[in-house]
C-alpha cells in the first residue's frame, strides 16, 4: 500500500495572530511553526496502516525551504520519504493543483490530509485534489478502517455521522478520532536526517483568489459581572438587553 500524506506548516496553536504592513501581511515575528495538528493525525493513521512492511508513507508539502524543519518532523514521526514543491502556497487551489500534479503518475492507493490547516484554508485541499485527479474525496472523517482492499470511513455530518464505503483510490481529510497522534522517538529523529526529501518545481496555474487585507475581531467591551446569587438578573439581561433569549 502506498500512501501520500499532505502536511502543512502552520503557526503554533498558541500564536497570537497579528498583522503588519497595514494589515496586509501575517506577522511572522517570533512565530513558532508546527506540523498542522490534523495532519499529524492523518500521518499517524498512514503509519498505522502500513506498519509491519505493509506499505510506505510519503509526505508532501507545498512551501519554501523554510518549511524543511516541519517536513523533517513528519519524517521523524515515521514517514518514509518526503517531497516539497518549491513555491509559496498561494491558496488552496494552487496547493491542490501542485499535489495533484505530483501524485497523478505515482500510483498512491490513498491520499490523506488533515481536516483543515489552522491558518488560511478551510477544508478545501482534499476535495480539490480529488477533483483534479478525478477520484472520490471524503471530507472530515473520524474513522478509517480497511480489510486490505475496501475502506470504510465515518464522516461527520450535522448532528451525527455517515458510514461510507469506498473501493479504489480516494482522498480523505482526517479529523480527531482517526488516530492518536504519534510522537517522534529518538530513533525517528535520528533517521529523519537521512531520509530522502526531494524538492520539485511548481507548475503554473491561473490565480483565482487573492487576500487583500486581514482584519481581527472587534474587541468586546468590559465584561458585565453579575453577582452569583442574581441569576435572574442574567436571564433578564440576556432577554431584554442582549436579546438572545
Amino acid at each position: 500500500m502506498k500512501i501520500l500524506v499532505c502536511i502543512s506548516n502552520v503557526p503554533d496553536t498558541t500564536t497570537k495572530i497579528t498583522f503588519t504592513n497595514d494589515n496586509t501581511e501575517f506577522n511572522t515575528a517570533g512565530v513558532q511553526y508546527i506540523v498542522n495538528p490534523y495532519d499529524e493525525i492523518a500521518l499517524s493513521k498512514a503509519i498505522e496502516l502500513t506498519e509491519g512492511g505493509k506499505g510506505t508513507v510519503s509526505v508532501i508539502n507545498v512551501g519554501e525551504a523554510s518549511n524543511d524543519p516541519t517536513i523533517r518532523k513528519a519524517l521523524a514521526i515515521g514517514a518514509d520519504d518526503a517531497v516539497r514543491v518549491n513555491a509559496a502556497p498561494r491558496d488552496a487551489y494552487f496547493v491542490a493543483k501542485q499535489i495533484a500534479e505530483y501524485a497523478k503518475d505515482k500510483d498512491f492507493d490513498i491520499i490523506l490530509t488533515g481536516r483543515e490547516s489552522i491558518d488560511y484554508n478551510g477544508n478545501q485541499v482534499a476535495a480539490m485534489v480529488g477533483e483534479f485527479l478525478d477520484i472520490p474525496s471524503i471530507s472530515i472523517i473520524k474513522k478509517l478502517e480497511t480489510d486490505g482492499s475496501n475502506y470504510t470511513v465515518e464522516r461527520e455530518i450535522e448532528g451525527g455521522k455517515e458510514v461510507v464505503t469506498v473501493t479504489g483510490k480516494f482522498i480523505a481529510s482526517c479529523a480527531e478520532g482517526v488516530a492518536e497522534p504519534k510522537i517522534p522517538n529518538m530513533r525517528g529523529i535520528m533517521s529523519a536526517r537521512t531520509k530522502p526529501l526531494t524538492v520539485v518545481d511548481a507548475v503554473a496555474i491561473e490565480e483565482v483568489t487573492k487576500v487583500v487585507k486581514y482584519d481581527t475581531p472587534a474587541p468586546r467591551g468590559a465584561v458585565n459581572l453579575i453577582p452569583a446569587d442574581q441569576t435572574e438578573e442574567l436571564i433578564n439581561l440576556l432577554h431584554s438587553e442582549a436579546k438572545v433569549i
Binding site: 503557526p11 482584519d215 475581531p217
Partner: peptide, 16 residues
C-alpha cells in the same frame, strides 16, 4: 471570511 481558525478574518478577492 474567517481565517486562522476564527482568530482573524481575511478579506479575499475572488479574481476568477
Amino acid at each position: 471570511k474567517t481565517a486562522f481558525s476564527g482568530k482573524a478574518f481575511a478579506i479575499t478577492e475572488l479574481t476568477s
